[in-house]
Design a protein around this nucleic acid. Structure first.
Lengths: 184, 184, 184, 184
DNA sequence: CATGAATGAGGGTTCATTCAT
DNA sequence: CATGAATGAACCCTCATTCAT
């Protein structure tokens, strides 16, 4: 109904469906049906499925990046490691909401979408470097900020996987406390 | 010899192809062609694509589990943390060879294969508990073995993701040294 | 000036695109884009793709007919066969510029456009009769002007096909000289 | 029903339909329906529409080439120009049966099928050279066999076009007589 | 006059699955 | 045991056409 919301609607529907059932398992018919438009209309706004996926990925990467930036800025104001870690861990659970789509996009990027992989690669490097700076500033790991930055990224992704597999209830509090103790 | 090898051949071909191009992007025709049999014969041995995937996953999970067990047993003989960590890290790069198929199977499990997800879930819990025991035995983290076991699993999966995305060359040596220093 | 040119613009764009990539391979979107208008506007001026094709064909047939008329009139002023033939052959290469669209229109006419076929039919008969008269007047073939007129038409169309297929460089000079010698 | 006739059946149905309604206007559904099989089966035998078209073209080119060869061989036995020409002209009406598909294939080749164009190009050159030799051998045009060979090819194609457009009843007898007189 | 948005029928293609031989 | 042939549902995508504004 509203003027320019069509692309946003499509994106929202795509994200919702693909997060639920996977990217390859979500057809353009599914998306069109979810939005309440015809397949033709969908193609009027997005000229291919890949275009939708790319826009979805951009949106997703932006959300995560913003979360990280905000997280680091907040950390900057206070200087205790406690808060830095707890904020990061808090963000992990936020990110966890996006975890499914995050994983699916990564698989898509790795298996069949070179362009997507390039974007993820760039973002991952960017994220890691931002973390590295903050680790150097706010933790005791001045000299090991480089390897630790890789580890922190890994931990987030790895926890997302475990949460997706619904293995065991992840003990966020204990993990958080442990990390704080270690980083101080 | 020959007849029993057919399923193994199919499994090997499936793993090879799916690791290269993804599970959804690998058709049964591709597999049959790779093995050098007809699609009909393939269906004689496996009654569906999902069956192949499940067997593949079983094989994959067994390989990883064996690697972990061997890793922990070796660690048991020596008691220094140094060796425990370096062995684990060595195994990570072994696992990295299986990393692609590991990720794809997880995505498949999460998006469209409940049975698969159950198997992964069981294995992940099993792995974590084994690690927890060893952490308690061989590192200084007697009291934090529980959260640390989650973290170690995360780190492995997370590093696999970064290696798949080909972001930056992972600094295994530095990571390894850092972990050893931390765990001691 | 401006408003009346719209149809001409559309026709010019259509001709250009369809000559390059074929009629069926040229969409109305392509044409609208080439003209720099919207598809809606295009439909304001032309109520269907077939209408565009028909107008294009009319324009095309008019161009060729004018070329032929001019050719015959020029021939009329001089009376040597030499000039008659060389003028015709010259015109052939002019026509060759329109050759692609000529062929495509004929195919379109034959396969899916009865109305178009009717126009071509009428024009071809008209052309042949004009040629017949001139052959009778200016060549030695007084009695065979009827079959020769069919042959001349054939030769032009046939040479166009060979030029489209880019078979061999057509030896226009030799062909021309041979025809002149024959007709005298 | 019969074992290996499926490809032949598909080819026959394709030729029939495409000759009637054009190549672009003939869908794979049409063909499958005409053969009495499913679209899936059609794809089992032909992996793309282009493959069908190419096979059709090969078959078509072979038929025409054989007709030409036979024609020239027959001409070789007798040495009179009369028979050479009348045989060629007879063959034209045979070719005319294939005329529609001939024209459509040429259009397809020129607009959207590079591989097809290459095959036509090769065949046209081959045909022209064969004609050139025969013209030199059996007609009075020893020195002009080169341009005359182009003209003869043109005449055939051009007459096909006129016959497709159903302009006027082509006066084969008169044309034939005229050509015989000219060539002797 | 002009437009952007919307549509639906149909296009070529893929593929897991079935089955007679 | 093994196969080639057959299938049909679903897929992504194209496009001429319509219409409210």
């Amino acid at each position: 109904m509203k003027p320019t919301n069509m692309k946003a609607n499509i994106l929202a529907a795509s994200t919702k469906l693909m997060a639920k059932q996977g990217i390859k398992n979500t057809s353009l018919s599914d998306i069109a049906k979810e939005v309440g438009i015809s397949k033709g209309t969908l193609y009027y706004h997005y000229s291919s499925k890949d275009d939708i996926i790319c826009d979805m990925a951009d949106m997703h990467l932006k959300v995560i990046t913003n979360a990280l930036i905000e997280c680091l800025q907040n950390a900057g104001f206070h200087s205790t490691t406690e808060e830095f870690v707890s904020i990061i861990l808090n963000k992990i659970s936020d990110i966890e909401n996006h975890g499914r789509i995050h994983m699916y996009l990564i698989c898509e990027a790795v298996t069949s979408n070179e362009k997507l992989r390039e974007r993820f690669k760039i973002k991952y490097i960017e994220w890691r470097k931002a973390l590295e700076l903050e680790i150097k500033r706010a933790t005791k790991f001045k000299d090991d900020s480089y390897p630790v930055s890789f580890l922190l990224i890994s931990i987030v992704d790895g926890l997302v996987i475990q949460s997706l597999l619904k293995t065991e209830q992840l003990p966020y509090d204990e993990i958080s406390r442990f990390l704080i103790d270690s980083l101080n």
